[in-house]
Design a binder for these strands. Sequence first.
DNA 1: ACGATAATCAATTTATCGCTTGAATGATGT
DNA 2: ACATCATTCAAGCGATAAATTGATTATCGT
Lengths: 233, 233
Amino acid sequence: MSISPKAALLEEYALIARTLAAPARLMLLEQLAQGARGVEALAEKTGLSVANCSQHLQQLRRAALVTSRREGKAVIYRLTDARTLELMDLLRIVAERNLAQVDRILQGLAGGEEAPEPISREQLAVRLDEGSVTVIDVRPADEYVAGHIPGALNATLAELDQILPSLVPDKEIIAYCRGPYSVYAHQAVAALRKLGLQARRLEGGLPEWREDGRPVLIDAQISADALKRIQLT
Amino acid sequence: MSISPKAALLEEYALIARTLAAPARLMLLEQLAQGARGVEALAEKTGLSVANCSQHLQQLRRAALVTSRREGKAVIYRLTDARTLELMDLLRIVAERNLAQVDRILQGLAGGEEAPEPISREQLAVRLDEGSVTVIDVRPADEYVAGHIPGALNATLAELDQILPSLVPDKEIIAYCRGPYSVYAHQAVAALRKLGLQARRLEGGLPEWREDGRPVLIDAQISADALKRIQLT
DNA sequence: ACGATAATCAATTTATCGCTTGAATGATGT
DNA sequence: ACATCATTCAAGCGATAAATTGATTATCGT
């Protein structure tokens, strides 16, 4: 062998790290954690150009973090392995522990106030059974209909005020979104607390909830056509 | 704020990943997992030039993965957080699961044969109490004297044949080295098995063993002067 | 076969990274 | 103060990566 096996191994490990070293690819992985998607839908969601998105996806594929299959004209990408989410989560944890910059950003999201600890998925499951919480899914409607926690309301940040009337006073509100990388839930909690409501985040997001084997409700009344139209929006 | 908080956060997470995306820095972190060291010693161990090594260390410091303190003329670097080792370990696990290239390299290390599963640290502790295993520390002598598993013999790959006479036939041999990133233990196991001996690797290496709170023997008879001389070698 | 659609490829520009070389800084001992 | 040693800084080179643009390849419906 021309180079040492040790160097060759390190090069492979570094390849995985390098693949995670671009914000665009982290966004794509976060999206793919919601479910398999085609290139155009991913480009739309992440704000990348289609060509750029395609190239990032190919880098993810080279590192074997995603796999693709053809489905008609579309190429559908999906995560190879849920382990990748663990890796991203650890990346986030190390960043939060070590980088002061991250703390500043998160404090800014909380509106300067002290944000309460998130509720664990296990605890939320218990509270849901009791009926002692209101759950809000702070993701775009198309992601909500593709799967959400049973009983959760759906409202984006801009729509929050529209669902205020349907909230029961003094009932704690739990907000969740895509996962630990997403900031919607942070912002929703800050907004609700500004209004004097009891609100907390869920630890993780829908992919983690699903990964735990907990129930996910898919809106069945949505026809396949409507889904397609939504994906195009 | 000029850019979105979400983009800012992703940029920070990507910084951590980017910092792990160079083989040289992975080597440095592996070395630092053995204990705190100065720049020159690290350069020596990793084969990097001193200036290059220094710059890599500063990148690691920018990502807050290491911290440094001045000690006389020398600047001593150490890991900020053992969590970083978890991150590197997960990087390795994802690489092993997903990249065929890694399998090929590891198979090459095992000499083409099927390598046995490594023994867990817990199991080794039990077997050590029983006295039913011979443990070999496959690291350079200076790292051995700085701390090793009690009862372990020390031999580098080149010195393996010298300790063969002191091995008890039919007693299983456990080899370990720096940690999951190091290949010495793989190679030692392959060499010993070629000779018809029962040999396995320990899961992880000395840093992981120490992290578990298990006993580590430091060769006390080595004077401070000798240690200094060894560090310079 | 033809046009339409989804994705990829190819070529380019700009920016960053890794490494080298040589000079500068900081602490120590005489 | 001066020489010495460990480390860092600064400039420069070649290589690699991200995003844009325009062309090309697959698949589908008619």
